[in-house]
Design a protein around this nucleic acid. Sequence first.
DNA 1: TATTGTTATACTCTATAACTATA
DNA 2: TATAGTTATAGAGTATAACAATA
Lengths: 141, 141
Amino acid sequence: MTALRSIEQSLPISLLRAREAVMARFRPLITGYGLTEQQWRVIRALAEADELSATQLAEICCILHPSLTRIFRTLENKKLIKRRRSRGDGRVVSVSLTEQGRVLFEEIAPQSEKLYRQLEAELGRDEIDRLLTALNRLRNI
Amino acid sequence: MTALRSIEQSLPISLLRAREAVMARFRPLITGYGLTEQQWRVIRALAEADELSATQLAEICCILHPSLTRIFRTLENKKLIKRRRSRGDGRVVSVSLTEQGRVLFEEIAPQSEKLYRQLEAELGRDEIDRLLTALNRLRNI
DNA sequence: TATTGTTATACTCTATAACTATA
DNA sequence: TATAGTTATAGAGTATAACAATA
């Protein structure tokens, strides 16, 4: 008898539920600015790295290439990002924030950070650090 | 200056990536049986609880009501679940697995459990237990 | 009146394959 | 030939509001 473990003990489902609980706090902020979660991940990655290729963004943001292409188009229409061909390799698209995109990021970031701080206050900094370490280890299995 | 923490330190993104890494192992099994992740969560919850209302399933599986209604229809067409009105409360729909649904679950479950065991062997049972505890705590914040 | 579930609607993402351009 | 990105296409989930039936 090899019964499946209970849902409480399922890693994928526990990860999903935990993420939902956390996102319930951040989602209103993001959607309030007319952004989807995925679009915000892209903006945030670009704010941190200045310039990334589509392949790098797909890896960092956990978004498939065709979805990314559409997100690029949407964010480009909103004038939040810009695309250009890489000088070194003509196949590569180099994506970066526009000035307007940077301004939007700077407006949202401190509010997001405030929500993180509240979370830390409730769960404890150590608990969150341990969790992040475990999650990043899991990511590289 | 309240700069946003790095992506590596972002709980929502770390949760997402960790989940992706884990699901990369389980997804082929589930899709190989023509099921989506969400459909499998519903089947699995029903296998564990025998009978659940739509509201209970929405809570357990992290799926919104309108999505659930469509999933019910799909799984009903495949004759994997059955719906009936609750005797006690006529508003409530009581969902359960059909015999065929149970058979499918019993076929997938041991293969899923085998993948879990591989994960445990790589990460360590204690590490996973600690992670599950932390995730379930996070869920209830 | 409140609750349970369904329907309607619009949007977005997922996933796979095929295609274009460049290396 | 291989790689980077786009396009095409089908399918599914997300999210909100409105609705029907029941309590």
